Simulated scan of single mutants.
Amino acid sequence: MPRYALKIEYEGGPFAGWQAQADQPSVQGAVETALARLDPGFAEGARIAAAGRTDAGVHATGQVAHADMQRAWDPFRLGEALNWHLKPAPVAILAVAPVDDDFHARFSALGRAYTFRLLARRAPATLDRGRVWQVLNPLDADAMREGARHLIGRHDFTTFRSSICQAKSPVKTLDRIDITAHAVPGGTEYRFHLAARSFLHNQVRSIVGTLERVGAGAWPPARVAEALAARSRAACGPVCPPDGLYLTGVSYDPMPFPPAPDDADASDAADAAAPRAACRDE
Rank of each mutant, 00 (worst) to 15 (best):
I8Q: 06
E189G: 06
F160K: 00
E226H: 11
T173W: 03
E189S: 09
H150K: 06
A113W: 04
P25M: 08
H182A: 14
R129A: 15
R122C: 02
C279G: 12
G217W: 13
P25A: 09
Q28N: 02
D39E: 09
R77Q: 14
A109T: 10
A269E: 02
V214Y: 00
A216Y: 00
L139E: 05
G209M: 08
H155C: 02
D55Q: 10
I48V: 14
T33H: 09
A43N: 08
D253H: 13
V184R: 05
R205W: 02
A141S: 13
A272C: 11
A230P: 08
A148Y: 01
I164Q: 15
V135R: 09
R213N: 04
Q24P: 00
P254C: 10
E80H: 13
G62C: 12
R223M: 15
S169W: 04
L118T: 08
L78D: 02
D68G: 09
V239S: 08
D175P: 05
G13Y: 03
I177R: 03
V184C: 05
R149I: 03
V27Y: 02
A95F: 05
L211P: 00
R117Q: 11
Q134R: 15
L110E: 14
V135A: 09
Y252F: 13
A141E: 14
C236V: 04
F107M: 12
A183K: 13
D23W: 04
M1L: 11
A227I: 04
Q203T: 01
H193F: 06
T54P: 05
A277E: 14
P254I: 11
G215T: 01
I152H: 08
G186C: 09
G57I: 07
P254D: 07
R154H: 10
A181G: 13
D243K: 00
S251V: 09
A22W: 13
A141K: 12
C279H: 13
R154D: 00
D142M: 07
M255D: 15
D265M: 10
E226T: 15
P221Y: 07
A216F: 03
A72N: 14
A234Q: 15
A113M: 08
A120Q: 02
N202C: 12
L118A: 11
F15Q: 04
P124A: 07
W18H: 05
A105L: 08
D265S: 14
Q63C: 03
R223Q: 15
P98F: 01
D68Q: 12
A167C: 11
H193N: 14
L86C: 04
P170M: 01
V99M: 02
A181I: 11
A270K: 01
A22H: 14
R205D: 06
M1Q: 09
F76S: 08
R53S: 01
D262P: 02
